[in-house]
Design a protein around this nucleic acid. Structure first.
Lengths: 212, 212, 212, 212
DNA sequence: AATGAATGAGAGTTCATTCAT
DNA sequence: CATGAATGAACTCTCATTCAT
């Protein structure tokens, strides 16, 4: 009845379609309230086809996490390697980028967020894909740390424990996102998330920037 | 004959026992991986009894949220009404209290956290109980805002948008907790959560405290 | 809609009804071609009820095996403990009993037969029930061996390796049953299974009975 | 370029490769726990190719049965037509041959055994192939009967119902194999299967051989 | 108030078979 | 001939909820 994929391109499209459908549903309803049937119906494929492309429900969830972290990694990398701006500016830009990622790829963000409703199996970080995802998340933080290091070397920042500060800064960013998640910030605080992040950073910098 | 024993066993009312069991299980396994049967087994009551005291699964979850927010509200209130300390000290103490709440009542904290795996129905804030919980969470923030206001009036803080700052400060606190949730902070950063919070506040205060 | 079991008797009847339905279906169609739904339909209960009484499909199969081996054990025991007959007569009677068991409880016999289409899991003799069943099957053979021993002691049989002979004799009995299973013996051979067994034994006894 | 390699790989025709893979898997895992995909993977062909050569799953099973019975028939025939040995020796040799077949071609033996986990469809002896297989199995028994007849005519055996004795003797043989299948005989009885068969026959012959 | 047997919709997953390429 | 993506009916099992006792 349904057409068969005749080209490689078609094939890719099919698994893509399924992934897209899954992404939207997971974001919308969460892991547990999304069923395979919902995904296949949205993607316009049969249940069997789903299992051709993905081993099981958890696997497609992980695939999405991987995709999400790849996008973030890419965005972060672009800022990190941008030439001609100071480390100070880079950190601010990184924060802004993170916030932009949250806004533009919120589906991914929610899937990646650890607090979110993930099945037990996902928390056991044994599977190869899980390790890759964890590794990439770590890479993101490492890149940020690199910028801090850069700032110290170029004399912009005071001597500091870069790993610690990286984690704290990013903790604050996540906190602001959490804030947004709860109350729609714009309406409650009357301030845009990106501005808020910038402000939080500015405050933080008062303890980090070298004065002269 | 069985009086004594019964009294002891039943002193803790059945509904209480069920709630306690549910709390532990929801914290441990999350909403979806906790079954009614698990709860009743842990509470040593029958499934039927569960439904005598709680309308359904979602209802007991909400009851726990309510209890959790009540405890927090109480803890916050105690700090707010403590006499003889400055607003500056109060804010620091409030942050410390929030962190203590997270640590001591983590079961409640996880259940309350919005990002966490909550069923669809919970996100629709229509039910009366949901409104009460939301209201109380709002109260917590209002109390903190009150302290900031107090600080401005007593000349400790600069003029500022108290609501905005309240939200930002608490966003940062949540961020730090998220940080803790991901990596066991103590091991990764080598710093205790409470210390970290204090430090984050200190930085923030550099922009808030009135210098003279 | 459906009535609830109000008495313990009713409850027992329900699990019995399920077991009975399963027995007939397993015998008729084999393990793999019997579905849980078939069983519940035949037993007039819901699918859920099945899982109230039996953990899963394999478990009910084992329960049947257990029941079957219990019946056989009982029948064997009755012959073994029959007073006033010689060991020679007892062995013949045991064989006859085994054949009768095959005919009267064929459903059980087929379920117990090792060659029959059993799922992989059943072949792994790890589960407690499996061990019990195996133990009982062993008991059956041990009882037969006991009769042979008795015969040697009373001077009816020549000295022989009782365990070995037990196994060979029972191997022959199984062979005859297999024969019956393939061709309906009565029609092909014109001889009843029990007679055949008696004849096979008679031949065997020519090497076992003490002549004097 | 790829000629040589192809020749070698393809020498064994595809249908042959598939059959071989199926044989091993059916023997190893049984009919129901063997999937078409397993077979095709093991045979290094595509699923489509499987269906080019075999109508469906049941058909390849039957093809294997046919092959198996052909081998047995051939082995039996060779003994039957061996010149210069008595009927008595021939019967013993036939039994030995059957046991050897069981050991050497156990994969086929298991597939042929009627008690084993065969799908419903196979038990309905309607299909043409099924009839052929049944016919060949019948031929095997007929050949054995022929040897008995031969023995009577040459005065080695007493007058007897040859068809009946054939079935009984072969029933005993199957019983011994069943015995072996259950307990590894060698270890339990301390006697090799072939020796056991010889012994069983010897006992049987005490009632069959003409004494003079 | 307390019970727990009974329910059945619905979940995830499998797999023999088809058929366009 | 050969392929393997696509299918979907059918399977086993779960679990929130009900309700007769």
């Amino acid at each position: 009845m349904k057409r068969r994929a005749r080209t490689l391109e078609d094939k890719q499209k099919k698994s893509e379609k399924i992934l897209q459908a899954a992404k939207e549903l997971f974001f919308d309803k969460g892991y547990y309230e999304t069923t395979i049937e919902m995904i296949t119906e949205k993607a316009n494929v049969s249940i069997g086809t789903f299992y051709v492309y993905y081993k099981n429900k958890i696997e497609i969830y992980k695939a999405l996490q991987n995709e999400g972290v790849d996008i973030l990694l890419d965005m972060i990398q672009q800022v990190v390697s941008r030439p001609g701006i100071t480390a100070h500016e880079k950190v601010i830009e990184l924060a802004r980028t993170y916030m932009r990622y949250y806004k533009e790829y919120r589906e991914y963000f929610d899937i990646m967020a650890i607090l979110s409703a993930t099945p037990r199996e996902l928390k056991e970080t044994d599977s190869p894909l899980s390790k890759i995802i964890d590794g990439k998340a770590y890479d993101v933080l490492r890149k940020i740390q690199g910028v801090l290091q850069e700032g110290i070397e170029s004399g912009v920042f005071v001597e500091l424990d870069t790993w610690k500060v990286t984690n704290v800064l990013w903790g604050i960013m996540d906190g602001l996102i959490l804030l947004e998640e709860r109350n729609n910030i714009k309406n409650v605080i009357g301030l845009d998330l990106e501005d808020l992040a910038a402000q939080a950073l500015e405050i933080s910098f008062s303890g980090i920037l070298k004065r002269n």
